[in-house]
Each structure stands twice: as structure tokens, then as C-alpha cells.
Computed example of a mutant assay.
Amino acid sequence: MPETLQHIMTEMTPWLQQYGYLILALAIAVEGVGIPAPGQSLLIVASLLAATGQMSLPLVLMVAGSSAFTGNSLGYLLGIKCGDIFIEKGWIKESTEIKLHAFIGKYGVIALLLSRFIEGLKQTIFIGCGMAKMPFHQFLIGNTMATVLWLTLFGLGPILISEELTPILTFYHHHQQLFWLVITVFGIIGLILFSVILKRQRAKIAND
């Protein structure tokens, strides 16, 4: 097993062996409300433990997915209800709020996809969406897409590519911004093409 992955296994396995799915659920959920936790690392280790029969993969995915979605949603609600209080108490700096609003205003739903994979931003983006009053239906779509993508990469991915995980993670951690910039560009291009095709189809139907 690669050295970096072995280190993660050594650090996280005792937690999962002692507290099981509970620690996995809590660590992932609290990240959605702005509290840093090793949820992603625990998910990777739980996935690998499931591959050896020490945990149930369906349960790992179900617990991780529901915890991420629920924690993100709670963060969104806290942003709506308590955003002003967070700023007054200094728990969220005004400069951070401005950056979050700008990021969310620029990328919309795509911001949720990007942020779920960037440390620091993934702990604040969901509260930021609430503070920015992102429409609930947009947040619901973005939260669902982000959760599914994250779960696929870090829940199923480790099992499929466990031997190649270290170089991939190393590249990802060193080039996070470039990686997601490329993904964003291709995503925007795809959305533009889809919108153009949809408009042409509607125009064709209207003309007919």
C-alpha cells in the first residue's frame, strides 16, 4: 500500500474501529456547518476497510452521503437564520463573507461543486450560500450534485484505484485550483452548449 495512504489508514482506522459509522457520520456532517473535521479522510479509510470486509460498503456510502447532504443543508439554514450573528460575533469575517458572496454570485450552483473539494472553502460555502440567500431550489440541485460527485470520488474511488491513490492525491493537493478551474471551464462550456441547443430546439418548435 502506498506510504501516504498507509499513513491515513494508520491514523484513521482506530477511530473507525472504536466508533464505527457514528464517527464517520459526525465528522462529515459537521464540516457542512463550518467545523473542520477529517470527514474526507475517514471516508477514504472506511471505503478501504469495506473492501476488506471490515465495514459494509453500502452502509459507508449511505452514511457518508446522507451526512454530507444533511450537514450541508444545516449549514445553508444557519447561514439564512444566523448569518448576521456570525458576523457580529466575529465567527465569520466580513472579508470572508464578501469573498463568499462574490464566489457564489459568479459561479452559482457550480460553486457548490467546486467548494466540496477545497479545504477551507468546503467548510464555509454552505453557510455562505444561506447568507447570500441563494434560492433553495438552486442550493438543492448544487448540494445533490456536489454530494454525489464527492461520494463517488472519495467513497468508491479508493477501492477502484487504491494502488494509484497516492500520486493522484498528491497531484490533487498541489494543483487543486488548476484542477477545478479546468473542470469549471469544461462545465461552463457544456452548460453554454446545452443552453444553445435548447434554445434552437425551442425556436424550431415555435416556428413549426
Rank of each mutant, 00 (worst) to 15 (best):
T144R: 03
Q6Y: 10
G155R: 03
E119V: 05
L61G: 00
T184E: 10
I23K: 07
V33A: 04
G83Q: 03
Q17E: 15
G130S: 03
H137I: 12
Y19M: 07
A37C: 01
K204C: 04
T147H: 00
H175Y: 15
T10S: 07
Y76R: 07
I87T: 15
L178D: 13
I104Y: 12
L160A: 13
K199V: 05
P2W: 07
K99P: 12
R200P: 12
L100S: 09
T166E: 14
M62F: 14
T52Q: 09
L5R: 08
I192M: 13
V196G: 08
W15P: 02
Y21P: 15
L181H: 09
Y76N: 07
Q201S: 03
G130F: 03
K81I: 03
A111D: 09
T152K: 00
A146W: 13
P135C: 02
V182P: 08
Q123S: 05
M134P: 11
L61S: 00
L191K: 09
G32M: 01
P167Y: 05
E94D: 12
F194N: 13
D208Q: 15
S195I: 02
I44K: 02
I161N: 02
A29V: 12
P36R: 00
T124Y: 10
I23H: 02
I127W: 00
G65I: 03
N207F: 08
T144E: 05
F117P: 07
C129K: 02
I159V: 07
P38R: 00
G108W: 12
Q123A: 04
A50Q: 00
A51M: 12
P38I: 00
Q177D: 05
D208K: 09
I161P: 02
H137E: 14
K199W: 10
L169W: 06
L24M: 15
F136M: 11
G105L: 08
T4E: 10
S56V: 08
L153K: 01
K81N: 14
F86N: 08
T52I: 00
F136D: 06
I189K: 13
I205A: 04
L16A: 09
T70Q: 05
I28Y: 08
T70Y: 06
I118D: 15
I125H: 06
G157L: 03
L74N: 05
L42Y: 06
S115N: 10
V63D: 14
F103C: 11
M55D: 07
G32E: 05
L78R: 08
S67Y: 09
W15C: 04
P2K: 05
L49T: 00
A29G: 15
G75P: 03
M131V: 02
E163F: 11
A37P: 01
S66K: 08
V60F: 01
G75N: 01
F103M: 12
T147Q: 01
V185W: 13
A64I: 05
L48K: 03
Y19F: 14
T166G: 12
K106W: 06
Y172S: 07
G142F: 10
L198N: 13
I192H: 15
L24N: 14
I205T: 11
L121N: 14
A46F: 02
I125T: 14
